[in-house]
């Protein structure tokens, strides 16, 4: 597995569960690759940031 494929799987895992083969291959790759390990954390943070962003829209623009 290369980094391009690994990042696709990390992104896909945000939208549907990975199968066992995908998950195992991804674990092996990220264990070896520091760039992909960082990317995985960052993709998780993006979702968290989007949730906070949506909440801010509510708080900032809401009635009252």
């Amino acid at each position: 597995m290369n980094c391009d494929r690994a990042t696709r799987l990390m992104s896909k895992s945000q939208d549907r569960p990975l199968n066992n083969g995908e998950r195992t291959a991804l674990e092996v790759h990220t264990w070896m690759c520091v760039g992909c390990r960082n990317f995985r954390k960052q993709v998780g943070f993006l979702r968290q940031a989007m949730q906070a962003f949506a909440q801010r829209q509510d708080d900032d623009e809401g009635p009252g």
Partner: peptide, 22 residues
């Protein structure tokens, strides 16, 4: 512009750790 021909990160685009994102 992110990966080389073999699909690995180019050195300029390889993600570095984000310090304290929370």
């Amino acid at each position: 512009d992110l990966f080389d021909r073999r699909g690995h990160w180019l050195s300029d685009s390889r993600p570095t750790a984000w310090d304290n994102p929370q």
